[in-house]
Write a protein that binds this DNA or RNA. Structure first.
Length: 490
RNA sequence: CGGGGUGUGGCUUAGUCCGGUUAAAGCGCUGGUCUGGGGGACCAGAGAUCGGAGGUUCGAAUCCUCUCACCCCGACCA
């Protein structure tokens, strides 16, 4: 491992790429655009999954699993959906290989599929084709299903976690009897995502709705949570869609209402992906490596012994064991790194790189004084504490770190929402300061497109808490009734 | 998919323009000794058909042709 990470202010993008690899989160694979998620990275993802899964179930959802392959005919039933994904689909055309005359493995042209299969870029079509059979009466509704799966979107340019050709995610797909209920569901899940982002990832997000051009292919409304990264670029961290009756109509999913009438069901879908890993990295980490919020850190506390010779190590191990037991009893994950193959200094740097929130160092001096050295990853501060106070201090500190990461990220985010009144200011802020720009927008796709062309900034969302005010559009000067958030985005 | 670039031990690179001993260095790896409160030192080792195929030549990492892969910048996207 080379010693130094590129500094964030030198090259943020390079810093990110290096960090993901050096912190052992993921690496590129032999397959273009596809990553290998390494054990440490996957452990974080598992924590994200576990918590989200709990939240989904708490809000009444059940998990299920639908196929990886989608028949092309299903896919083409919803027109705008096809338009949105057609350009990035992997297609399975054959089902057999054979040896050619030189002994090379080739595709067997005789084994052509009657109907080609799309590798799912998302599962709306196959799920709605299934829901048709599941839904007959209003009594079968609502249908509240989630699946954890991988999906494939054939991206031209990929970056670990932020955009990969294959990624892991969850996709919720719900069916409701009324429009109102589906709308509430879509908004509810946006709230679940925001809650998760802020309380577990310690990442402040803005809840809002997407403009028509940024909307999911096939949705009537897309609710999103938008986060701000340290380099001033926005990142869409989760989306929840109100699909109206589009998929119900395309797949003929009807139910008999209480009144005995045949009606189409109302739909939502919502998802977050391994992209959250990228968001997590870019929200908190620093030039020394990852900084993980305690609630998602695979290792919350690491203990590094400092010793000379086996005898001292044994003595320290004895002292450490009750500490480990007490911490584990409190549900805190602890690693005692007693490897003799690495030096303390090396380990310190290693765990800083990996973002372990708290580090305990314990050596002969501490044994004498019944103390340990306790170091915080987020502030890089160290203090000497008495062993008897250790567990309660750690509990408090973990909570404090979680809180402080959020507060710090929030302060950064809030100081990077800049309201502008005209387009010169807009460009000025975008170039010099970055972040979100709050401005009046006339509501037209033309304006949105022009601004994107000229500045590369897009409308990230119309914030939920926006007030109905009137002003003039930052670009066109035409009357405008909403303020929206612009930013350059990942 | 358009423009640019790079492929040399596990990693990062030098050497390529201008062909000529046994392909070089740092990191990492293995063994050992000393060490141990912030990536420690020294000694001794292992490890490369120079991305692949073909060609030119007495001789190719170096020149030519083809091919593959990856990276960066654009268009597209969670």
């Amino acid at each position: 491992m080379s010693k130094n990470l590129t500094k964030r202010n030198e090259d943020y993008s390079k810093w990110y790429n290096e960090l993901v690899i050096k912190a052992d989160l993921a690496e590129n694979s032999g397959v273009r655009g596809c990553m290998v998620i390494k054990p440490y990275g996957f452990a974080i993802w598992e924590k994200i999954q576990a918590e989200l899964d709990r939240m989904f179930k708490e809000t009444g959802h059940q998990n299920a699993y639908f196929p990886l392959f989608i028949p092309k005919s299903y896919f083409s039933k919803e027109a705008s959906h096809v338009d949105g994904f057609a350009k990035e689909c992997a297609v399975v055309t054959h089902y057999r290989l054979k040896n050619d005359k030189d002994g090379k493995i080739i595709v067997d042209e005789d084994a052509k599929l009657e109907e080609e299969l799309i590798v799912r870029p998302t599962s709306e079509t196959i799920i709605w084709d299934t829901y048709r059979k599941w839904v007959q009466s209003y009594r079968d509704l609502p249908l509240l299903i989630n699946q954890w799966a991988n999906v494939v979107r054939w991206e031209m340019r990929t970056r670990l976690f932020l955009r990969t050709a294959e990624f892991l995610w969850q996709e919720g797909h719900t069916a409701h009897a009324t429009e109102q209920e589906a709308l509430i569901e879509a908004e509810k899940m946006q709230g679940v995502y925001a809650d998760f982002a802020e309380n577990f990832m310690a990442m402040p997000v803005i809840k809002g709705v997407k403009t028509e051009s940024e909307r999911f292919a096939g949705a009537l409304e897309t609710y999103a949570i938008e986060a701000l990264m340290q380099d001033g670029k926005a990142l869409q961290a989760g989306t929840s869609h109100f699909l109206g009756q589009n998929f119900a109509k395309a797949f003929d999913v009807k139910f008999t209402s209480k009144e005995g009438k045949q009606e189409y069901v109302w739909a939502t879908s919502w998802g977050v992906s391994t992209r959250l890993m990228g968001a997590l990295v870019m929200t908190h980490s620093d030039d020394k490596g990852l900084v993980l919020p305690p609630k998602l850190a695979p290792i919350q506390v690491v203990i590094v012994p400092i010793y000379k010779g086996e005898e001292q190590l044994n003595l320290i191990s004895e002292k450490v064991q009750p500490i480990i037991d007490k911490l584990r009893a409190k549900g805190i994950s602890v690693k005692f790194d007693n490897r003799d193959t690495h030096k303390p200094g090396w380990k310190f740097a290693e765990y800083e790189l990996k973002g372990v929130p708290l580090r305990i160092a314990i050596g002969p001096r501490d044994i004498e004084n019944d103390t340990v050295e306790l170091a915080r990853r987020d502030t890089l501060t160290k203090e000497i504490v008495q062993q008897e106070d250790l567990v309660s201090i750690i509990e408090k500190l973990l909570a404090e770190i979680q809180e402080s990461l959020f507060t710090k990220a929030l302060a950064y985010r809030d100081s990077h929402i800049t309201e502008v009144a005209n387009f010169d200011e807009f460009k000025e802020v975008l170039e010099t300061k970055g972040g979100f720009i709050l401005a009046y927008w006339d509501g037209t796709a033309e304006t949105e497109e022009k601004i994107k062309e000229l500045t590369k900034a897009t409308i990230r969302c119309i914030p939920n808490d926006t007030k109905n005010e009137s002003g003039s559009c930052v670009f066109s000067g035409k009357p405008a009734s909403v303020k929206v958030l612009f930013a350059k985005a990942y």
